[in-house]
Design a protein around this nucleic acid. Structure first.
Length: 647
DNA sequence: ATAGGGTTAG
């Protein structure tokens, strides 16, 4: 009769009510225990086999599941992705008196977090009186994952006030909470405060925590803070390196990303780059459009056998597309034996930026036929593709199909695409109407698209409306002021031009100057508009002046409307001829071999004059010239451009 | 006694 000698601790696992009831119903305690332990084992093994349904059946019969059994049941619900099953298990667990068990509370919070049922997770937390640090951490994690960063931080403060000490996991979760606010308020301030806590409690040597810290600063765009933290990490591992490289790649510093990658290869002997590292490195190559570098990185990826990893594959497609080699991008895409929604999205936007709208839509349809459900990025890509070639009706149909067929509700980005699509096609009234009828707050991207379209079609009135909103929403974005000034300049409203320029100055902002670059023999040469430091500048100027003269004979009239100064024609022509892109083209003419395509990348939108000059040169010099501007590619060949002057 | 964490493509 060993059953009678059950130790008291074990008794705790059998909640008093339930076991009392079972004991009353059967006079033989030993058999009851026997049955319940069998049921425990049965439920446990059913869970392990993945037979949740039957496990739930046994659960609803007379049984006394143990804590461990409940744990397996919860894990099984997560595995089966079944919230209803989870609720059933939760109810049984409460009936069995486990409601105050902090271990199971942690598991339940994790489960509800997995199901995005954050309200339920919160209820579990509120009901649990004995909150171990695990319970707190589970809720921090759940809130951070659900985008309720501010709630997590509020609770974190409460926890501090009560005097419960954080552990190493707490810090990682609350740091994540700082960057997971669904509102657009910045929680950077709290992040810095937590950084302080970490230092004060001596956690600055924990590589997990400080890597999260690097990532937090990265997501706030504070690359400098991130690098300060990164430099102090005593034992950096792959993840720390990757986080810092990703930081540069994502914050407009692709050059630093590549440089840090090089440093990692040289210095970090014990941490080899992994697929995650390589994705960021590929992004950096894509941002710089350095095909030669990109190919070298591709070789390294092949050597390391990282090429079968889906994210790497998709990043390769994007890299080749953004480096101007759509054919290679397509070849990589065709070589994939498995594709997910991101791979398809990569290929769709690859066609889009190269101005192949019909092909982008075809890939979209193939994706649907392949049984992959599109997501909101898919629609950003495919609508963008429509926009680049003026497929207005197609774009409108796709936009309407989003909700109707795919249950994807448009977000700001989609509205921005639509405004762009209609605006470019000179249907500005329709574009404005879209904004009026939006069910969410328009935001800077949407107004920015409208302003951009006003720039193309020189609509002063609408531009003033859009820019008024933009100056409120993002007062420090110099680009908006410049666009408005451009529009006034084109309308020859010089007084207004000066007013906007003064506004820009008064706010201490500066126009982003145009910059173009070209990769020749694995080196990058970059050009600014006024570039006296360039050793070849005189040669380039001479070449451009000669070309301009010849072009004028064939009917070229310089288009000087981008010049924001009220100068005489000749001076304006002089300025336009010095645009960075023309310098890069001239450099390309001198420094590339005969049949080689000139590939140029530019940080801004191509100006009209550069566009027509490049068209001319492509014919005159019998050269293919590929120019990537901020939005898309222009493929100049034999006097025409692939954008068909629609950009 | 026990549980959990950081970097990832468009």
């Amino acid at each position: 009769m060993r059953a009678f000698q059950t130790p008291p601790t074990l008794q705790l696992n059998y909640p008093p009510n339930r076991s009392y009831r079972t004991r009353l119903s059967s006079n033989q305690t030993s058999t009851t225990l026997q049955i319940s332990s069998n049921n425990n084992q049965l439920i446990q093994s059913l869970c392990k086999q993945g037979n949740l349904k039957q496990a739930l059946q046994i659960l609803s019969q007379e049984s006394n599941p143990s804590q461990h059994t409940y744990e397996l049941l919860i894990l099984s619900c997560i595995h089966k992705n079944s919230l209803p099953a989870g609720v059933i298990v939760h109810r049984h667990l409460v009936d069995d008196g486990f409601e105050q068990d902090p271990f199971l509370a942690t598991k339940l919070i994790n489960m509800y977090s997995e199901f995005k049922a954050i309200g339920n997770a919160r209820k579990v937390f509120d009901k649990t009186r004995n909150r171990t640090i695990f319970v707190w951490n589970a809720l921090f994690r759940a809130l951070a994952l659900a985008g309720h960063g501010e709630k997590a931080l509020y609770l974190y403060r409460q926890m501090n006030r009560i005097g419960i000490p954080s552990d190493r996991f707490t810090y990682t979760y609350v740091l994540k909470a700082c960057v997971s606010s669904e509102f657009s308020i910045s929680l950077l301030h709290y992040g810095k405060e937590i950084h302080g806590h970490i230092l004060r409690h001596g956690f600055e040597t924990n590589v997990h925590i400080v890597t999260t810290l690097v990532d937090m600063y990265a997501r706030f765009g504070c690359a400098w803070y991130a690098s300060c933290v990164f430099d102090e990490i005593p034992a950096k591992n792959v993840v720390s390196w990757s986080a810092m490289i990703a930081c540069y790649a994502k914050n407009g510093r692709p050059f630093d990303a590549l440089e840090l990658f090089r440093e990692m290869m040289v210095e970090a002997h014990d941490s080899l780059p992994n697929s995650v590292t390589m994705v960021s490195v590929l992004q950096a190559c894509a941002a710089l459009a350095v095909l030669g570098q990109g190919k070298l990185i591709h070789c390294y990826i092949l050597r390391r056998g990282l090429d079968s990893i889906l994210p790497v594959f998709s990043a390769l497609v994007t890299m080749y597309a953004k480096c101007g080699t759509l054919e290679i991008a397509r070849r990589v895409f065709d070589g994939m034996d498995k594709r997910d929604v991101v791979s398809w999205n990569s290929m769709i936007s690859a066609y889009g930026i190269h101005g192949f709208g019909a092909e982008a839509i075809q890939i979209f349809n193939e994706m649907i036929d392949d049984g992959i459900s599109p997501n909101n990025i898919t629609f950003v890509s495919v609508l963008g593709a429509c926009s680049h070639v003026g497929l207005v009706e197609m774009g409108k149909n796709l936009f309407e199909s989003m909700v109707r067929e795919y249950k994807i509700f448009p977000i700001v980005e989609h509205y921005a695409c639509m405004v762009d699509l209609l605006g470019r096609a000179n249907r500005l009234d329709e574009a404005a109407k879209i904004i009026e009828e939006m069910r969410i707050e328009p935001g800077p991207k949407v107004w920015g698209s409208l302003l951009g379209a006003c720039r193309i079609h020189c609509n002063v009135e609408l531009a003033e409306r859009a820019s008024t909103r933009l100056f409120e929403l993002e007062p420090t974005n110099a680009g908006n002021y410049v666009l408005l000034a451009d529009i006034y300049a084109e309308a020859e409203m010089w007084g207004e031009v000066n007013r906007v320029k003064k506004l820009l100055e008064a706010r201490g902002l500066q126009k982003v100057s145009g910059c173009s670059w070209i990769e020749v023999k694995k080196k990058i040469y970059s050009f600014l508009s006024i570039d006296e430091l360039n050793p070849q500048i005189e040669q380039l100027h001479a070449l451009l002046v000669r070309l301009a003269m010849e072009m004028k004979e064939k009917g070229y009239v310089p288009d000087t409307e981008v010049v924001l100064y009220d100068l005489d024609r000749e001076e304006k022509e002089q300025i336009v001829l010095g645009h960075s892109e023309k310098l890069a083209v001239a450099f390309g003419l001198i420094n590339t071999s005969k049949g080689e395509t000139i590939r140029i990348t530019k940080n801004l939108r191509l100006c009209k004059d550069c566009h027509s000059v490049t068209k001319f040169i492509s014919k005159f010099a019998n050269k293919e010239i590929l120019v990537r501007d901020v939005n898309r590619f222009h493929h100049f060949k034999n006097g025409t451009c692939s954008c068909q002057d629609y950009w």
